[in-house]
């Protein structure tokens, strides 16, 4: 995908081509954020880090979804279920088998990756080249099955393993305290996302997969075992979603409903970022995470300045991802960095 390679040039072009209205909008956004930061500095930093943690989790789910969608053209609705399984596997390793957190952090993604391989070999292989709607429907059925299996094994209510000792404390930033675990989440997710990004865009493996997407027949002709690569790709996408689930379950717990909740958000992220662009998904994930956490702060700060309390809308954060997506799609139907013609 060329979009992933010249992301920087695209960015520059994007900025230079902006209309005055868009630049004004950006200026207004910066002013609003600045106002919020001045009015409530502690809360602002707090929410910014909360948004970053949430955004990185979203990136980890969306990355696998974007890989499968952009590279193989399958809309994998079951991706949220894989994320959920990552959380449950972590819980099982830590609570049921008594293994330490580090072991769970390794076992859960691999376990989820194996489930991913099974799904790919049994179901998704039949869907390559078919209409995307069929893939959406089939993986929706898979989601139901995985959800129900999780409910069977771990029950319908949320489960949460104990946080590891050394990550329970807080880290002092000047204006506020932040849980060490949150910073740990950001670090782990950044490293893994960067790793996958590097693998796809800079290595021979990534190159051969992308070649296979462009022209499968020709790629196989020159000696690439394409089905194997696609399976490996799917393992990778599933494992990173599983890692996201493992990171989240320790802080927030997990329940069977998480499967559909997070696949929705991941879709929103992929659509905002643009189908086919991995860079776009990363950016959009962070954008959605921050929007969800910062908009309430911005609104309440604005309410203080203007004295109009009606601006401070309660509970707007749940709708924010969808509002952002609707707006982005109306202005730019293919998403921020999407390629023209994909899935249209």
């Amino acid at each position: 995908m060329s979009s992933t390679l010249d992301a920087r040039t695209r960015m520059q072009r994007l900025l230079s081509e902006r209309s005055p209205a868009a630049l004004l909008g950006a200026l207004a956004g910066v002013l609003l954020l600045g106002n919020a930061a001045v009015q409530k500095p502690g809360l602002f930093i707090d929410q910014a880090i909360g948004g970053l943690v949430y955004g990185m989790i979203l990136v980890m789910i969306s990355l696998g979804l974007a890989l499968v969608l952009g590279l193989m053209g399958v809309v994998n609705f079951a991706h949220g279920a894989l994320f959920m399984l990552g959380g449950y596997f972590t819980y099982a390793t830590m609570a049921s088998y008594g293994l330490p957190f580090w072991a769970a952090l390794l076992i859960a993604p691999i376990g989820v990756g194996i489930v991913g391989i099974v799904i790919e070999v049994v179901v998704l292989r039949r869907l390559y080249g078919k209409e995307p709607i069929i893939g959406l429907l089939a993986t929706f059925g898979l989601t139901l099955m995985i959800e129900e299996a999780a409910r069977f094994v771990w029950g319908a209510s949320a489960v949460q393993p104990a946080k590891p000792e050394f990550l329970t404390g807080g880290t002092d930033l000047i204006v506020t305290q932040v849980g060490t675990y949150r910073l740990f989440t950001v670090a782990v997710s950044t490293i893994s996302v960067a790793g996958v990004y590097y693998l796809i865009t800079k290595t021979d493996f990534g190159l051969s997969v992308r070649a296979g997407v462009q022209d499968g027949e020709m790629t196989e002709f020159v000696g690439v075992n394409l089905p194997l690569r696609f399976t490996a790709m799917f393992f990778l996408g599933s494992a990173i979603a599983g890692l996201g689930g493992a990171l989240r379950v320790v802080e927030f717990g997990i329940d069977p409903g998480a499967a559909e909740e997070f696949v929705l958000l991941a879709f929103v992220v992929v659509v905002i970022g643009g189908v086919g662009s991995i860079f776009g998904s990363v950016l959009a994930g962070l954008l959605v995470g921050w929007a969800q956490f910062l908009v309430p702060v911005v609104l309440s700060a604005l309410a203080i300045v203007t004295g109009v309390s009606a601006i401070n809308v309660q509970g707007i954060s749940d709708i924010i991802p969808f509002l952002v997506m609707i707006v982005v799609l109306l202005i730019r139907p293919r998403g921020l960095f999407g390629e023209e013609g994909l899935l249209e």
């Binding site: 929705l264 659509v271 709708i319 609707i326 799609l329 899935l343």
Partner: peptide, 22 residues
């Protein structure tokens, strides 16, 4: 916008309405 976008957008609109009612 194409059928996949249609599916996702109806989902998004429906979620937005759900949260508003909630």
């Amino acid at each position: 916008m194409g059928e996949i976008y249609f599916a996702l957008l109806t989902l998004a609109f429906s979620q937005a309405i759900y949260f508003i009612v909630l």
